[in-house]
Design a protein around this nucleic acid. Structure first.
Lengths: 150, 150
DNA sequence: GAAATGCCGACAGAATTGGTCGTATACTGA
DNA sequence: TCAGTATACGACCAATTCTGTCGGCATTTC
């Protein structure tokens, strides 16, 4: 429970991969899928989703593919997850429309909404850049991450 | 995505309810289920789970039921969720046994594990007591929660 | 011993997620 | 302008997970 969907995982992996290959103009869905052994068509759909929400730029045709729409530092894990899995988040009674049908049950919701916020904050504080490996500087970067997310 | 299971929700609600009725010796699964309109048998199983992990004390027979095993302040949301939904947590490739079967894919895991930690910390910082309503002192308590979970 | 309750495993139905297929559209280069 | 490589997108099937139910048993009280 409380785990990311595979799609979100794939999405994060893909962005990470793109972030690690800034030299290339664009990478096709297949390129990335092959790199990680992800079903190509599925990943394609995921990338398309992210394109629609402005995280990626796409280009059809030969040598086409996807590229980050912004600097990896400017794309948060939160955005990725949100783009792929929708509005998201804790507390199964997704508020918005009507409350938890039955009874004034969900008195729990309100406090949990705060937990929600906290988690969102954590995810927002992580960027794709943080996920990517930066040529063995890893030692230090990793340390930074610890502080970031603590 | 990333939402609590209904079971976890139910569990939290039930504990909250118990915390709000400290005067009674024990409340039966049915009592609680009726109070919130939750399927009684399902809730029963959930309460049993929590009993096994030591969050609740149970007592069979007439006027039996469940009661918190400790002060509400000493039971965290984390414990509840953990008891109900198992070991839990982010990153779909549940590490433990083998890694993500395919390729050295999950280079993402490591950084996400930290996110995981952060979320766990947040959940650990919330107690059942925080969820319960304390006779209109609410204003202040709620404020405290905000700070807590920032 | 009967009623109320907890305990537990098995299982069925529902919902969600993961993954595939087919087709249309766009771009590139020869 | 044609062939090949890509993305775009909707429909759909398959697999898994989650929710909820049932049945039988154990324990306690009256």
């Amino acid at each position: 429970m409380l785990k990311l969907s595979k799609k979100a995982d794939y999405g994060l992996m893909a962005l990470k991969y793109l972030a690690e290959h800034p030299e290339t103009q664009a990478l096709s869905a297949k390129d990335v899928a092959d790199a990680y052994g992800i079903p190509a068509q599925l990943l394609a759909k995921i990338l398309q989703r992210m394109t629609k929400t402005g995280l990626l730029r796409s280009h059809a045709g030969m040598n086409g593919g996807y590229a980050l729409a912004r600097d990896a530092r400017e794309i948060s894990a939160y955005e990725v997850i949100h783009a792929i899995d929708g509005p998201l988040f804790i507390t199964s009674c997704t508020k918005g429309a009507k409350l938890c049908d039955l009874t004034p049950s969900c008195t729990i919701k309100e406090p949990l909404a705060r937990v929600n916020e906290s988690i969102a904050e954590v995810l927002k504080s992580i960027s794709i850049y943080d996920l990517a490996e930066h040529e063995h500087v890893g030692e230090h970067e990793a340390h930074g991450l610890v502080l970031l997310t603590r």
